[in-house]
C-alpha cells in the first residue's frame, strides 16, 4: 500500500528547522514561512500536518489546503534537510500515483 510507504517515512521529520534556512543561516528563506511566519507553513509544519491528516488526527480543511499549497517548490528544504529520506518520498510520490491533491501536497512539502 503506497500510503503506508509514505506513512512509514513522513513522521521521520524532526522539525529541526534547517529547511527554513539558506546555507549560511543568514535569514529564513522558505518563501511561505517567510511570508506567514507560523511554523505550520514551513516544511516541517507541512510534514507534521500531512502525517496528522493521514492518521485522522486533523480533518482536511481550507486552511490546511492553503498551508500545503503555498509551497513554491523552490526545493530549498530538499537541499538543507539533514536527513536522507526526502528523495525517497519524492520518488514514491511520482512513481505510484497518489490522489492528485495528496501527491502534489507531498511533492510540495518535500521539494
Amino acid at each position: 500500500m503506497i500510503q503506508q510507504k509514505y506513512v512509514s517515512q513522513i513522521h521521520r521529520c524532526f522539525r529541526c528547522g534547517y529547511c527554513k534556512f539558506p546555507t549560511d543561516y543568514s535569514s529564513f528563506n522558505c518563501p511561505p514561512y517567510r511570508r506567514f511566519r507560523f511554523e505550520t507553513y514551513s516544511t516541517g509544519g507541512r510534514l507534521w500536518l500531512i502525517y496528522a491528516w493521514l492518521k485522522g488526527e486533523i480533518e482536511w480543511s481550507e486552511h490546511l489546503a492553503e498551508i500545503l499549497y503555498t509551497c513554491t517548490t523552490c526545493k530549498n528544504c530538499a537541499e538543507q534537510c539533514p536527513m536522507k529520506f526526502a528523495p525517497d518520498m519524492k520518488r514514491a510520490g511520482y512513481l505510484h500515483g497518489w490522489p492528485a491533491f495528496l501527491k502534489l501536497s507531498m511533492d510540495m512539502a518535500i521539494l
Binding site: C16, E59, I67
Partner: peptide, 18 residues
Amino acid sequence: KNYVSNQKEEQYFYARDG
C-alpha cells in the same frame, strides 16, 4: 489578524515538540 491563529492546524502543530 495575519499574526494570530485559533485554527486547528496551528493548534495541532504548536501542541507538540520532537
